[in-house]
Design a protein around this nucleic acid. Sequence first.
RNA 1: GGAGAGUUGGCAGAGUGGUAAUGCAACGGACUCGAAAUCCGUCGAACCGGCUAAUACCGGCGCACGAGUUCGAAUCUCGUACUCUCCUCCA
Length: 426
Amino acid sequence: MLDIKLLRQKPDWAKAKLAARGVKAEKIDEVLALDEQRRTIIQETEGLKAKRNTVSDEIAKAKRAKEDATEQIKAMREVGQQVGKLDGQLKQVSEQIKQILERLPNFPADDVPMSLNEDDSREEYKWGTIPTFDFKPKAHFEIGEDLGILDFERAAKVSGARFVYYIGAGARLERAVYNFFLDEHYKEGYTEMITPYLVNDDSMYGTGQFPKFTEDVYSITNDDQNMTLIPTAEVPLVNFHRGEIIDAAKLPESFTALSPAFRSEAGSAGRDTRGLIRMHQFNKVEMVKFCKPEDSWHELDNLVHDAEDLLQKLGLAYHVITLASGDASFTSAKTNDLEVWLPAQDRYREISSCSNCTDFQARRAGIKYRDDNGKPQFVHTLNGSGLAVGRAVAAILENYQNADGSVTIPDVLVPYMGGQTVITKA
RNA sequence: GGAGAGUUGGCAGAGUGGUAAUGCAACGGACUCGAAAUCCGUCGAACCGGCUAAUACCGGCGCACGAGUUCGAAUCUCGUACUCUCCUCCA
């Protein structure tokens, strides 16, 4: 949620920022006009309420003194009706403001490429050597199926498209990968969490998925109560502190969690239809940070670094990009994506997305800390994948494949595989 | 799933129709070389509006949340959420 005071104070600046995210200037004008209306009504209704309070006090005194107060009561009856009418109007206008405001995305940070075109995302740097093969590298799903460690067909029978069975060494590789990720985060000081995977609407609202992006998720309705399968562990991790004032001494606070992520992938029909890249259900290790506003840009760097570290230890080539304003997520002020090299696709593919959401989520979810003056202020929230597990497995299969169809296990994962160094056909 | 009890400020805890006691904590001051103790005073979350140089002042709101009754609701009515206890069920 944006701070309406900022829109009020710097409308032109806000319009320019939001234009880079595809928001029309008229939207801002509309919400500011409503805001003007709202404040007029507030002044009127509060004046009447102040009067009512005073007179009610007089009525109370009169009653105690056993005096007659019918005149005042009669007058206040009218005031009460007027107040009720104005309050109704106020509620309506406030609702309209909320409707617009909660659908406006975060302001992009100053160093973000201002463009609606995702091709204008900026490459920051590359790491690692892109592997060369003296044979034609296979796609990870071919490797997996040939080795008998991934089964998409049976998953389609049991569930549908975009699901998978990991089998034997495949399942153990997936487990090795996420255990490795979690252990590394633990060493970096993250607090590990196992969270709920079903969350309520307030939580989805708090992290910014609702009300705008209801089609992207799976929901379950039970006894009139709506629950959503988490699209990312960011939701339960950030909402952990919803409605709380965090002890400032604890900041910055860092959490990590492994969870399945459920996504309907509405609108992505035909894209990445084969393999592990785009699934309805996939495992992801997520990192979330809460910090003071002045620390959030530094913490974003830390987040990116912690995600990069995993790829470096796995020996996977990648690059880091800063997403263009129009391509970043709704809640993000700045997003750095890590894209890992996939030999069969001959290109980099996203494996981590690290965002500074500034106070956008904190304002929605009511997450604060007390500043040096003891006054509650919104924290900044950050989130990043560390990393998407399925895509990491895909990258390992493709980058570490051998001519005979076997796959070498990256050194750091060998202990996690019980000493196994290579996956061969069973 | 069934029955009962509860939800008031940072914490404890009164308040059953007249507009949130009291204690602790916190903050300021006095005393003191300093501190503790004591004494005096201030402060009741967060939020919104007005006026501002202002974190000053004025007002609104505010007793889990939402709606209703009333001139007036923490208090009465209805609904919802959550917590606790007991029973039932269950990995």
